[in-house]
Amino acid sequence: MPSRDFDGALIAAAVEVPYRRKHDEAGTAGLLAQAFSAVLARSGFTAKDVDGLGVSSFTLAPDHAIDMTWRLGLSTRWNMDDCNGGASGINMLQHAIRAIQHGDANVIVLLSGDTFAPADFKRLVEHYNVVTRDYLRPLQNGGPNSLFAMLTARHARRHGLTRADYGRLCVAQREWAMRNPGAVYRTSLTLDDYLRAPMVADPLCRFDCVPVVSGANAIVVARADRVGGRPAVQVQALQSRFNHDHQDGDGLSTAMACFADTLWRDAGAAPTQMDLACVYDDYPAMSLIQLADLGFAPDGDLRALIARVASQALPVNTSGGQLSAGQAGAAGGMHGLVEAITQLQGAAGERQLPDAALAVVSGYGMVGYRYAMCANAVVLARTNGAPS
Rank of each mutant, 00 (worst) to 15 (best):
S3R: 04
R4D: 15
F6W: 13
P18R: 13
P18N: 05
Y19V: 02
E25C: 07
G27H: 01
T28H: 00
G30Y: 10
Q34A: 15
A35C: 10
V39W: 06
A41L: 08
F45V: 09
D51P: 12
V55C: 11
F58A: 14
T59R: 15
A61Q: 13
D67Q: 09
T69G: 02
L72I: 10
L74Q: 04
W78G: 03
N79E: 14
M80K: 15
G86N: 08
S88D: 04
G89S: 03
N91V: 05
D104Q: 15
N106T: 14
L110T: 05
G113R: 00
D114M: 07
A117Y: 10
A119S: 12
A119N: 05
D120K: 04
F121E: 11
L124E: 06
H127R: 14
Y135Q: 14
Y135L: 13
P138G: 09
L139C: 08
M150S: 09
H155V: 07
G160S: 06
R163E: 15
G167A: 10
G167S: 01
L169P: 07
A172L: 08
Q173C: 02
R174L: 11
A177Y: 06
M178C: 15
Y185H: 08
R186S: 06
S188A: 15
T190K: 08
L191T: 14
D193K: 03
L195W: 06
R196G: 00
A197V: 09
V200M: 13
P203W: 10
C205D: 13
C205I: 05
F207C: 04
G215A: 06
A216G: 12
N217A: 09
N217V: 11
A218F: 00
V220Y: 07
R223F: 04
A224I: 11
V227R: 04
V227Y: 01
A232P: 05
A232K: 00
Q234N: 06
Q234E: 14
H244S: 15
Q247G: 11
D250R: 09
G251H: 07
L252H: 00
S253H: 06
A255Y: 02
L263R: 05
W264Q: 00
P271E: 02
V279T: 03
D282V: 14
D282M: 13
I289Y: 03
D293V: 12
P298R: 01
D299K: 03
D301A: 12
R308Y: 07
V309F: 07
V309A: 09
V309M: 13
Q312L: 04
A313W: 01
S319R: 00
G320R: 05
L337P: 09
L337I: 14
V338I: 12
I341T: 09
L344E: 02
A348R: 05
R351V: 00
R351A: 04
P354W: 13
D355N: 12
A357H: 14
L358P: 08
L358M: 13
A359C: 13
S362L: 10
Y364W: 11
M366P: 00
M366Q: 09
V367H: 06
V367Y: 03
Y369H: 14
V379K: 07
T383K: 00
